[in-house]
């Protein structure tokens, strides 16, 4: 996972509420196999041609490079699809600032190096105003502060464990292997002893390594 260092970027304003993960990434693209390129379908059904009269914010030339997205309340509710976050990181979005988030979406952000920040109404309005004016924001994860070009800094909350993982660029797998590998190995050894039936024996399993026809028949 990419390290989350201090982020300085303009922010794209999309102040809508109850945007569900289907709107962020429609189900019909879930079969796509590569995470790279998913960004093409981010907000797929809301996208517009860049020269449209009222273009979608991410289609506006001035917001194309935004690494921060400012949204409304309950952003990312609905289906657990991680594609919603993958598509965002694919277009370079590293931080989403909202009034509030859907639980699973928020958890998925942390797992994929994207920082979700929830703010109260007053601070949210300040960030939104800065975004609308095209002013860059600085998101400092170390000090948990958002710095605007004018006015006081805005403090935000992020759980310590997630903050550390983001800053180290350490994903959950890395964290578990670093901290718990020995405990896991000990547990597995013990479980093999007391519940031997859970390790399926090779004999019945052998029929599941098929010398199967589909190897030749192209699916």
């Amino acid at each position: 996972m990419r390290k989350f260092e201090t982020l300085v970027s303009i922010a794209a304003p999309y102040n809508e509420s109850d945007v569900d993960t289907d709107a962020i990434f429609p189900a019909r693209f879930l079969l796509l196999l590569n995470r790279a390129g998913l960004g093409k379908h981010l907000f797929n059904d809301l996208r517009t041609p860049p020269n449209a009269k009222d273009p979608f914010v991410l289609d506006r030339p001035d917001f194309k490079q935004a690494q921060i997205l400012v949204v409304g309340e309950r952003f990312g509710i609905g289906s657990s699809r991680e594609h919603a976050v993958w598509a965002m990181s694919d277009v370079g979005i590293r931080c989403v600032i909202a009034r509030s988030f859907g639980d699973i979406f928020r958890a998925n952000c942390f797992k994929n190096g994207v920082l979700p920040i929830a703010l109260d109404t007053a601070q949210h309005m300040r960030v939104l105003a800065a975004a609308n004016r095209g002013k860059p924001l600085t998101v400092d994860l170390e000090t948990k502060l958002i710095k605007l070009s004018a006015g006081s800094d805005i403090a935000f909350d992020v759980p310590d464990q997630q903050r550390r993982a983001l800053m180290l660029g350490q994903d959950e797998i890395g964290a578990i292997l670093d901290e718990d590998a020995d405990t896991i190995a000990a547990f597995e050894a013990q479980q093999k002893q007391i519940m031997p039936w859970l390790s399926v024996s090779p004999e019945p399993l052998s029929s599941f390594y098929p010398t199967h026809p589909s190897k030749d028949a192209e699916p």
Binding site: E82, I173, I176
Partner: peptide, 11 residues
Amino acid sequence: GSSECETVFAT
């Protein structure tokens, strides 16, 4: 979720 599947395979 997908990332969790990855975690289970790895750890």
